[in-house]
Each structure stands twice: as C-alpha cells, then as structure tokens.
Design a binder for these strands. Structure first.
Length: 367
DNA sequence: AACGGTATCAACCGCAGTGAC
DNA sequence: AGTCACTGCGGTTGATACCGT
C-alpha cells in the first residue's frame, strides 16, 4: 500500500509560481507563520499542494536568502564541505545560512563540478563527483591533515549544537551576533533557533550593514518578482484570476501595507541575478513590509551583504544536528591534494556570512 | 535573424525520518 | 507496534535564457 499523494493531483497547479501566488503565500505566512503547510492551500486559496508551498517558501521566499553569484569563498566552502560530507546539501547549506540547499546543489551541479573537473584535468587527479577515485602518493600527507580538519569540523558542529541549544540564554551576549535577534511580535522572528553566530565570521568590508527589519531579504525577493509582474501587467495589479480568498489576501496586502505602485522603480532584467535593488524599489517595499529601517543607502545594497540584517529569524530555520555525525568513510580517499591549496590558500580572507570552519587551533576558543 | 545546442535554476518527485495517535 | 500525517532531503526534470554558428 503506497503512501497517498500529499495532495490531489487534480486541480493542483504546477510549474513556476506567479508573483501573485508568492504574495499570497508570503502574506499568509506573515500572518500565521511558517508551518502547518497542509492548511496553507486551503486557507489561502492557492491551487498548490502544501509541499509546493513549503518548497517555495523554503527555497525562495523565506527571509535571509541570498541569491545571485556565489563568492569565491563560498565556492571553496562548498567544495570543502562536499568533499567532507558528500552530497548532503542541507548539511552543507547549514554552513552557508544565506544559501538554500537547492541553490547549493544547483551550483554544485552546474558550476563546481565542471570547475573541479577542469582543475583535476590540469592537475591529473581523477575526481568523480567531487571525490577523487584513486588516492595518490600525497594521500598520506593529506590524511593527517584531513583527520585534523575532520576533528575541527566535528568540533565545530558540536559547538553549533551547543549554540543552538543555548541560544535563548546567549542572545545578545556576543558581539558577532546579528542585530535583530528576536522580535516576538514578528512572525518571522520567533524566539526560536538562531544559528551558531559565534561561528559566523565577519562579512566583508563591502558590507553596508543594512540593519533593516526582519523581512529584508524576502522583501527583496518579492520586490524582484513584483517588478517583473508589474512589467508584464503594469495596469493589472488589481486584477486577479484567483479566488476570493486570494482577493482577500491581496486586498489585505495592498491596503494594510500601502502598496505604492509608482514606487516600484525601474524594472530589472530578469536575467540579473545579483540580487541588487534600486534604493527606490527597496524603499517602496520597506513601506510594504513595514520595515523598521528605511535608510535608502543601506537598502540600496540589499542582497549583497547582510551582516546586520536579520537572516535567521525564519521560524523554519533549524540547525542541522547531523554535523556531529560526519561520515568518515571518505577520509581515506580524500581527493583534495590538489584542491587543498586552492581551498585554503586564502584561509584568512574575509568570508561572507559563512560558518567558520577554520583549523582547530583557530577554533580552540570554543573550548 | 534564425536555429540548435548548452547552461541554468526553479520546481517536482519520491523516499526517509519523526512524532502523534 | 502499527498507521498516518507531515516535514526534510536529495535526485531529477523541464522551461527558458544564453550562446555560438
């Protein structure tokens, strides 16, 4: 007896989400918080299955998601973690809180695999799927190094776990913690999990330290798609092919949040994936989502750096407790002799919202 | 400009894990 | 202990944007 489908296949819409659907979903979650996905399609009138709603939220709409190009630092981190953890994208993503597992997975499959292939073809080591198929003579050298690093990572994971478990007690005590830490009045800012922020390194000097409210990145997302939407149907924002339910939600948004159409600003090419926003656009959505900080200068850098934005107040965000269970079977075949240097040649370079997985001695402060 | 191949990424699918009953 | 509902995860697909000819 197979498991029944999560939703009726009949009457369930599939394919790309429309901006309107996104708004409905975001609006609903803003009111009720994420979770109870089963009820979302029913309560919103969305013709989507609960799973699709959850996925859309998790991978695209939720706050704190950084989109656009991966930095070199992030690349190295992913490669390192992939070699360490395998294709456990969720675990890898937990080290890069601004990225979704889906994003990382896609990036790995489309970019990094090739990059590694290139590197290995230049260096001669055979790497299959990011893992070397045959150990070479440098393996023994790497082995000790990897054992040590593995220790470090396990230690880091333990620390992350401790941080996660003791977050309520520690909030606000650490200067590296993010600014907006808890806002019980905001559904996106529950007093739930906060990532091991002590493990977060400072973001780059280019950070504009946007300290906007808890909905910054989601605002960015929504604004992005709204721009496209407005571009497509500039005079039909009020039209809807959805149900009365949807109308209610849209009405709720456009009135309660004072949606200023004319302030959407210049449209951006959909091919632009750097996540940047015009100050005008972002400012408009500041008002939409009642963000606390409407500083246009800061907002102009949305999607670039989020050192001071609240990235981790999504109630859905959870630590990956599996970090304490690193799989060790790859250790003997760790491929990365060639990659080692590349991965760590700028270990001191500033990271961007990345978990610090620096060597043990640099993490000794954790004990 | 048109066409075909390739790259990209959002979304889907199906399975596994977990907790409630 | 078994069943069910729900969520999380990783692999895969499909639409489409991009690029070279």
């Amino acid at each position: 007896m197979g498991r029944p489908p999560c939703c009726d296949k009949v009457g369930v819409k599939k394919g790309p989400w429309t901006p309107e659907e996104d708004i409905i979903l975001v609006s609903y979650i803003q009111e009720h918080g994420p979770g109870n996905w089963r009820a979302v399609p029913t309560n919103t009138g969305l013709l989507r299955c609960s799973k699709s709603c959850r996925l859309r939220w998790t991978n695209y709409l939720r706050p704190g998601i950084r989109r656009g190009n991966f930095s070199e630092q992030e690349e190295k981190m992913i490669i390192h973690l992939q070699a360490l953890l395998g294709n456990r994208w969720a675990a890898i993503a937990s080290y890069l809180p601004q990225r979704t597992d889906n994003d990382i997975k896609n990036y790995w499959n489309t970019h990094l695999k090739k990059k590694l292939r290139k590197i290995q073809s230049g260096g001669g080591d055979e790497i299959v799927g990011g893992q070397k198929s045959q150990p070479n003579q440098e393996t023994s050298f790497c082995k000790g190094q990897w054992e040590r690093r593995l220790q470090t990572d396990i230690h880091t994971a333990k620390q992350a776990l401790c941080e996660a478990l003791s977050v309520d007690n520690n909030l606000g005590n650490n200067p590296t913690r993010l600014v907006a830490q808890s806002d019980s009045s905001n559904p996106f800012c529950p007093n739930s999990f906060s990532p091991p922020a002590t493990l977060l390194t400072q973001t780059t000097a280019t950070s504009s330290s946007s300290s906007s409210g808890v909905y910054a990145s989601s605002t960015e997302n929504i604004s992005k798609l709204l721009q496209n939407w407005m571009k497509k149907t500039p005079s039909s924002a009020a039209k809807s092919e959805l149900s009365d339910h949807n109308d209610r939600f849209r009405f709720s948004i456009t009135n309660k949040l004072q949606l200023p159409k004319q302030e959407f600003g210049p449209t951006r090419s959909s091919s632009s994936s750097d996540g940047s926003l015009s100050a005008t656009t972002t400012g408009a959505f500041d008002s939409i989502f009642r963000m606390h900080n409407s500083d246009d200068e800061n907002n102009a850098n949305f999607g670039q750096d989020h050192q001071s934005t609240s990235l981790f107040h999504d109630a859905d965000y959870k630590p990956d407790m599996e970090h304490g269970q690193f799989q060790l079977q790859q250790q003997d075949e760790m491929p990365l002799t060639l990659l080692e240097k590349w991965l760590f040649d700028d270990v001191n370079a500033p990271s961007q919202g990345l978990m610090d997985i620096s060597p043990l001695e640099e993490s000794s402060e954790f004990f």
